[in-house]
Write a protein that binds this DNA or RNA. Structure first.
Lengths: 145, 145
DNA sequence: GGACAGTACATGCGTGTGCATTCAATGCAA
DNA sequence: TTGCATTGAATGCACACGCATGTACTGTCC
């Protein structure tokens, strides 16, 4: 890639810091709020949402882990363990994929869908607070310790 | 906060996913590249950069940890340990603050400044690749495992 | 001065993550 | 069919994180 002149570089850095700030504010608040009220992390919610979308779209067809992976920004191992947590919590079931027995198909349980529906308004509210107005929530701009 | 109509909600979610994708791509590639070539994590680089800026701006005055904290999106404990790593690597020195002996003042070492200057072009290059064109780097869109 | 709330940083602990590796199943080629 | 590279997912391991707490220092109020 070509070198950047200093003006382009400054713009890029400013854009990056803005992105970091928004991400930190939203991610921190989501993790805290979803965790406190629903026992879900940000990524857990994200996975539940993909499963809901997958089921609604494909007429209830279950998602394979390998289909889920590219849509969630986690390593394969982290996703594997996250699914194990969801299964342990009774929100999801894992079953062997008949077509390709290496694969695992995931299905939302009733409890999983319920949990998602309950958590969703809070999730959207947090997004509104942290992304919407442009004003960052101070209590999460720097994560409290 | 008021309820969102479904259109506003969809926009918010789209914005959030875009942000997540960009952040994941940039953060993953930064951590990998800076780590491989310079032994620095993304946040380590960020802290070095604040120290460089602080020193250049204030006429070489050292930064206190409490000044640094709000600019880095880390918990106080994570920052404390990050600084310990930088000190162990010889990139930074910690000293008691004379004015307020609870505080710690940080100063960049020569090695710290050098490391920063060496890593900076790569950092900017990665930002250009992941933020610039709008095209995400596929190899990091989903972190490899 | 002495007690006490508040602040700055460090540390014990549990947990989530990525990397490397492993294991099973698949597809292909000889 | 056998042999082998590839793929999907699970697991050992090290590490960075956040939370809760601990320790040292400051400032205030009595």
């Amino acid at each position: 890639m070509a070198e950047l002149d200093s003006q382009a570089e400054a713009g890029l850095v400013a854009q990056w810091r803005e992105l970091l700030a928004r991400h930190a504010a939203a991610a921190c608040m989501l993790d805290r709020e979803l965790g406190d009220r629903f026992g879900l992390g940000m990524s857990e919610f994200e996975v539940l949402e993909r499963l809901v979308e997958g089921c609604d779209a494909g007429g209830g067809h279950a998602l394979r882990v390998s289909e889920l992976a590219p849509t969630v920004h986690l390593s394969q191992s982290a996703l594997s363990r996250l699914i194990a947590r969801l299964e342990k919590a009774g929100l999801v079931t894992r079953a062997m994929c008949e077509a390709d027995r290496r694969g695992i198909v995931l299905t939302l349980t009733e409890a999983g869908r319920d949990r998602y529906e309950q958590a969703r308004p809070l999730h959207r509210e947090v997004l509104g607070l942290t992304l919407g107005g442009g004003g960052l929530d101070k209590s999460c701009e720097a994560p409290p310790d």
